[in-house]
């Protein structure tokens, strides 16, 4: 099956430090790819590189998305084309109303797709079901974006954005960090709802816990800036037992 995103020999640095050193990865449509690896391996740098974060400078290689090289594409264009990153640490933006922000983002996407923009009432109707499913209080959408949210609330808000924006490639950076069991379950339910056999997921995680809820199709081990092993979900147990040091590069 052809890939929706192909990452070829990707090299990237943050500041003076080379982090990604020739990373290769293909995301298949409808599949869940989990990236696991030790601290400092380059997992978050990879997620930032895919969405065009200003911290990351690409020094080589290509990111091909739907057949097009997106190395130079602006972050908002990538988002409009369907790439979504759920941030590990979502920023707080006092004064920007959560609902207003989400409606602006959704309408930007709808406009990009040649669809009619939604008015406030239509948008609230759309959101109501998602809020209930994620266990989010309705007042969270009238508050400032992420301001004063707990860690769990911030992650639920990221998933709410994902549900509303319906992206095609979904990158989840440490989505399980800081979540209690209930929040983890709600967040996982939101993610699983998006699994429709067409969307691709890139789940970046330290631990296997989230993978009990979102069943991966592939496990990729990222170490020292490169993918050193790709296998099926059975690799998780091996990693749990022996750790990353025991993995030999293929």
């Amino acid at each position: 099956m052809s890939s929706v995103m192909k990452i070829e020999n990707l090299q990237a640095k943050i500041g003076d430090k080379q982090i990604l050193k020739g990373l290769n990865l293909e995301l298949e449509p409808g599949k869940v790819h989990a990236i696991m690896g030790p601290n400092g391996a380059g997992k978050s740098t990879l997620s930032k590189a895919l969405v065009g974060h200003y911290d990351v400078e690409l020094t080589g290689g290509d990111i091909i998305y739907k057949g097009k090289n997106i190395n130079e594409m602006e972050p908002e264009e990538r988002a409009l084309e369907g790439i979504f990153l759920s941030f590990q640490h979502p920023v707080e933006i006092p004064g920007v109303n959560n609902a207003y922000f989400l409606r602006t983002a959704l309408n930007a996407k709808r406009k990009h797709e040649g669809k009619e923009e939604l008015n406030a009432a239509e948008f609230l109707r759309l959101m109501r079901d998602h809020l209930e499913m994620l266990g989010m209080k309705s007042d969270m959408i009238s508050r400032s974006l992420n301001e004063g949210f707990s860690g769990g609330e911030k992650k639920r808000n990221e998933i709410l954005q994902m549900l509303i924006l319906e992206p095609e490639v979904i990158i989840l950076d440490e989505i399980d960090s800081g979540l209690d069991i209930d929040a983890l379950r709600a967040v996982s339910e939101g993610i699983n709802k998006m699994k429709d056999g067409k969307r691709s997921f890139l789940v970046i995680t330290h631990y296997s816990r989230i993978l009990d809820y979102i069943e991966p199709d592939y496990i990729h081990v990222l170490k020292d800036g490169r993918i050193i092993k790709t296998a099926g979900p059975e690799l998780v147990a091996q990693l749990e037992e022996h750790g990353y040091d025991a993995i030999e590069e293929e």
Binding site: H53, E76, A79, A105, K109
Partner: peptide, 15 residues
């Protein structure tokens, strides 16, 4: 704040 700007852009909102 560059982080805040990027967050909004990453959701498809123009610079």
């Amino acid at each position: 704040d560059r982080k805040q700007l990027f967050y909004l852009q990453s959701r498809g909102i123009s610079y």
